[in-house]
Design a protein around this nucleic acid. Structure first.
Length: 191
DNA sequence: CCCTGATTCGC
DNA sequence: GCGAATCAGG
């Protein structure tokens, strides 16, 4: 696969939309995220919009910038014509949702396992997360999705959380929070 | 041990 | 110019 104008245009568009290199690579097909990143750099659009103020020190102290005889500062009004290599192809402004769509749960949430001696903060967090959980089925479980059960396994609306797991753990960040509570925090929460 | 972008360097 | 390999951070 080569970098045709169209592919470069799509790359540029997606990059400015904030898509990750791997997502762009997947969308384009035939290239790896490395290729995308390499191309991004070659195109000079690495810093997605603002200029990097923290690059390497140019080591150019402005000390003798002013010639001694210069009485007038001689300002330069518009030194940068800024080529603006942004062709901005007439792309259809539609097809806007680059972000992963989320399936809302819209459902009362049956009682959770041992949901009464858990750190209130973590619990609140979980209820929040479960509103936005992906709710995947048993067959959709993989090594890297949260396996926290949501709902009653006996009913149809049962599902697993399905969010991205905390690497190395079986659950997402929020569910790890309630799954692995140190005994210290669960002590004396009953009066 | 998943992801991210950044950089290098042989091609 | 290209991108795999590698590096560096989360």
């Amino acid at each position: 696969m080569s970098w045709t104008d169209e592919r470069v245009a799509l790359l540029t568009k997606m990059w400015h939309e904030g898509q990750s290199a791997s997502q762009i690579a997947k969308e384009l097909g035939g290239v790896t995220r490395n290729a995308v990143i390499g191309k991004v750099h070659r195109l000079g659009l690495s810093g997605r919009d603002a200029e990097p103020p923290k690059t390497a020190e140019p080591a150019a102290p402005p000390l003798a910038a002013e010639p001694a005889a210069a009485e007038a500062p001689a300002p330069d009004p518009v030194p940068e014509p800024e080529p603006e290599a942004e062709p901005e192809p007439e792309e259809a402004p539609v097809q806007m949702p680059p972000r992963r769509q989320i399936i809302p749960a819209g459902q009362p949430l049956p009682p959770q396992p041992s949901a009464n001696e858990i750190d209130p903060e973590a619990l609140a967090n979980v209820r929040e997360v479960e509103k936005t959980a992906k709710r995947i089925s048993l067959m959709e479980l993989t090594e890297r999705v949260c396996k926290w059960p949501i709902g009653d396994p006996a009913t149809e609306d049962f599902a697993f959380c399905g969010l991205a797991v905390e690497p190395g753990k079986p659950y997402c960040e929020a569910h790890v929070g309630v799954a692995f509570q140190p005994m210290s925090s669960r002590r004396d929460r009953r009066r």
